[in-house]
Nucleic acid binder design. Structure first.
Lengths: 205, 205
DNA sequence: GCGTTTGCCTATAGGTTGTAGGCAGACCCA
DNA sequence: TGGGTCTGCCTACAACCTATAGGCAAACGC
């Protein structure tokens, strides 16, 4: 019987796990299922990943990185509302195209792992977007959190099917929401002179 | 040996499951763990709940109901921004006080179960809040989704510890966000007369 | 008191996690 | 080319969770 090695590696396991997550859900990502996918016994995987938690952590880090790359691509060369929209769409599109990976990206990481993850790039890019809105600290931090909440919340609710029961397209609500955020952020901008009137267009860049 | 019946019932199992979720996380809610909590064998629970999925569904429905009750209490007799803040705080406070139940409330329900759940009350109450902002359809639906996204997103990110790394209190960002939402919604209101505020592109679908 | 129902039990099977140790092909070097 | 080592996947096993089937005794109705 020709014994052919499966060619396992942490990277291949991570990628296959991400694919499995997209197909069956992140909670279905198990070492047994992954072993079946490679035509291998479960115990063999322990030579490449320490345990189930490490595998999931690797998938989470991979997804965070991939998402950050896409967002970075999307916002390159854009500013203001244009950048906000590009960022938001890249985010939502990823969550829709790769639901399992997106779910993985929300896997709880221990603090130091999180600090070394692409999660920090996400925060940095969000701050970059906000440069177009002239927000001083701590308002900028507040805005980072608000945007993160909206993006994640929308993706999560949409994925959960929460928008399926009403006959209004999720796409339209998304556009409306982004428009609303842009307006709100411009209202909050701190122009060098003049009164902060609602709807002031004092954002540079 | 005095045989004392444990007094199991679907309701007691649901409540105990909710408590277990708050203590150890919703993913740790297992029939075995629940059986241990009652000093009973796992198989005994199958006389009261069909399987693990049904138990989790019951906990989810319970949490949705409980959360809806709290929100209803909070918004009673309030309107406008006052109501918005009360709604939002009731929501966030619940997520912080009962993280496991809140997680359970996001458990994926099949469509008809969801339609019969307290989830519809949540949507109705959100619409009630928005009566103070004079939004015509489909803007009202858009706003319902945006608010839901922010509330859920903020609770989820906060629970995940996403706000722990920056030295700005989550409470302040929360207040800022609510203020921002109030402003944005007022900008979007459709007064009987007067010019649309800058930033609104007359999106009436 | 008798029969039925209720409530939890034991026994059992299958699936997933994780550890320990074995074996053979692949690789390195002389 | 041959010998030694390393690598990669294996079997075996123990523990835990889910789920089903069937048993037994207390509780209940009359």
């Amino acid at each position: 019987m020709a014994v052919v090695r499966a060619g396992l590696s942490p990277e291949r396991l991570t990628l296959a796990g991400a694919e499995l997550a997209d197909e069956a859900g992140f909670d279905q990502v198990t070492l047994s299922a992954l072993a079946r996918r490679f035509g291998v016994k479960p115990a063999s995987l322990y030579a490449h990943v320490k345990n189930s938690h490490e595998l999931k952590t690797r998938i989470a880090l991979f997804a965070l990185e991939e998402l950050a790359d896409r967002v970075a691509d999307a916002v390159a060369g854009r500013a203001g509302k244009d950048a906000l929209t590009a960022f938001a769409n890249a985010y939502r599109d990823y969550a829709r195209a790769y639901p399992g990976r997106y779910e993985a990206a929300r896997y709880r990481l221990d603090p130091q792992t999180a600090a070394a993850s692409a999660g920090v790039r996400h925060a940095q890019m969000t701050r970059a977007i906000l440069r177009g809105y002239d927000l001083a600290e701590p308002d900028q931090t507040h805005a980072v959190r608000m945007l993160g909440s909206v993006f994640h919340g929308y993706a999560a609710l949409e994925a959960a099917g929460a928008f399926d029961h009403t006959d209004v397209a999720a796409q339209q609500s998304w556009a409306w929401t982004l428009d609303c955020l842009d307006t709100a952020l411009r209202c909050r901008s701190t122009p060098l002179t003049g009164s902060p009137t609602p709807g002031s267009k004092g954002h540079r860049q």
